[in-house]
C-alpha cells in the first residue's frame, strides 16, 4: 500500500505473489537496517571519537572517521584521568570492580545454588514462604532498602568497604539466582535424587557429587548474569563505597561529568568504552547463553 510508487516501471505485470513478497522484503530489510543504524551509531561514535585528537573533535564532524588515529585518549583515560584530586585514571576503578566482582560472583552464586537445591529437593516447612518473600523482594525498589542496609553494614563494620558491597550484591542477586537454580534443579528427574538418598548420601554429598556437576550449564548462565549485572551497577557502588573503593562505573561518571577543567571528549569516550568493554566482551563471547540468562531472569521473574 505504502510503496506502490517505488517501482512504477514494472507496473501490474509479473507473477503477483512473488512480487508482493519481495516488496515486503524491501520494507522488512529496510526497517531492520535502519534500526540497526540507530543501535550501532552510539558504539561507532564512541569508537571514532576516542581515536581522534581534541583539535579534530572541535572541528565538528562527530560521525567522521578519525583523520589521524591516536591512542593517546585511551592511555589517558586508563592511567591519567582525574577524579577529584586523584589522577590515576580508570585503572583504579577497574581494579576495584574486579575486586568487587570476583567475590560477589562466588558468594552470590554459591549461596543461590544451595538455596535453589534446598528449595527443590529438600523442601521444609516454610521454605516456599521464604522463597515467595524473596521473589516479591526482587520487585521492591532498592531505594526502600538502601538505608537499613547502611545501618546493617555499619553494625558489622563493612560500610564503605569492598566487602560491604560484595554482601549487598549477594543479597540483591539472590532472588533471581535462586529462582534460576530452583527451576533448574526442579527439572532434574527426582529419581536421581531418590536413588542417591537410598544409597545413603546426605545433603552436601548429593549437592557436590550429583547436582553440581549436572548444573554446570546453569552456572555459566548465572555467571554471565552476575558479571554484567555487578559490573554495570552504579547505585550500590555510589552509596556503599567511598572514593578509594569506587567501582568503575562510579569513577567513570565522576570523570566524565566532573565540572573542573576542559572537557576532553575523546578521553571521556575512551573511558566510557573501557567501562563498557567487560560486559560487551561477555555478551559477544557468550552469544546464546546471554540470551538464555536474561530470558531466564526476565520471563520467569
Amino acid at each position: 500500500m505504502v510503496d506502490t510508487a517505488i517501482n512504477p516501471a514494472s507496473g501490474p505485470r509479473g507473477p503477483k505473489p512473488k512480487k508482493s513478497f519481495s516488496r515486503g522484503n524491501i520494507i522488512l530489510y529496510g526497517t531492520l537496517i535502519m534500526v540497526s543504524v540507530y543501535y550501532l551509531l552510539p558504539l561507532y561514535v564512541m569508537v571514532v571519537t576516542s581515536l581522534k585528537g581534541m583539535p579534530e573533535i572541535r572541528m565538528g564532524n562527530v560521525f567522521g572517521p578519525p583523520m589521524e588515529i591516536t591512542f593517546e585518549p585511551w592511555i589517558k583515560a586508563w592511567a591519567e584521568a582525574c577524579t577529584g584530586i586523584n589522577c590515576d585514571g580508570l585503572s583504579r576503578g577497574f581494579g576495584n570492580s574486579v575486586r568487587i566482582l570476583i567475590p560477589s560472583i562466588l558468594l552470590s552464586i554459591g549461596i543461590a545454588s544451595i538455596n535453589g537445591y534446598a528449595l527443590s529437593n529438600w523442601k521444609f516447612k516454610g521454605s516456599e514462604v521464604f522463597f515467595t518473600i524473596l521473589i516479591i523482594g526482587a520487585f521492591i525498589p532498592y531505594q526502600t532498602m538502601l538505608y537499613p542496609i547502611v545501618i546493617l553494614l555499619r553494625e558489622v563494620g563493612l560500610m564503605g568497604s569492598i566487602g560491604g558491597l560484595v554482601l549487598v550484591h549477594t543479597i540483591f542477586g539472590m532472588p533471581i539466582l535462586t529462582l534460576l537454580f530452583r527451576n533448574y534443579f526442579a527439572s532434574i528427574p527426582e529419581e536421581l535424587f531418590k536413588a542417591a538418598r537410598v544409597d545413603g548420601a546426605g545433603f552436601w554429598q548429593i549437592y557436590f557429587q550429583i547436582m553440581l556437576p549436572m548444573a554446570l550449564p546453569i552456572f555459566v548462565v548465572a555467571i554471565i548474569l552476575q558479571v554484567t549485572g555487578i559490573w554495570n551497577d552504579f547505585l550500590f557502588g555510589v552509596i556503599y563505597t567511598k572514593p578509594a573503593t569506587y567501582p568503575m562505573t562510579v569513577q567513570l561518571n565522576n570523570i566524565v561529568n566532573s565540572v573542573q577543567g576542559i572537557k576532553e571528549y575523546n578521553v571521556n569516550m575512551a573511558a566510557t568504552l573501557l567501562t563498557g568493554m567487560v560486559p560487551l566482551v561477555i555478551y559477544f563471547a557468550s552469544g546464546k547463553l546471554f540470551v538464555r540468562g536474561i530470558a531466564a531472569g526476565a520471563v520467569k521473574g
Binding site: V35, S36, Y39, L40, P42, L43, V45, M46, T228, W231, N232, D233, F234, T249, L252, N253, V256, N268, M269, T272, T275, G276, P279, L280, I282, Y283, F284, F290, V291, I294
Partner: peptide, 16 residues
C-alpha cells in the same frame, strides 16, 4: 545488534 546495548550499563548509555 539489537540486544548488545542491553549488556551496557545505564552510565555508559547515558554518557554515550
Amino acid at each position: 545488534i539489537f540486544l548488545y546495548p542491553f549488556a551496557l550499563s545505564f552510565v555508559v548509555t547515558g554518557l554515550a
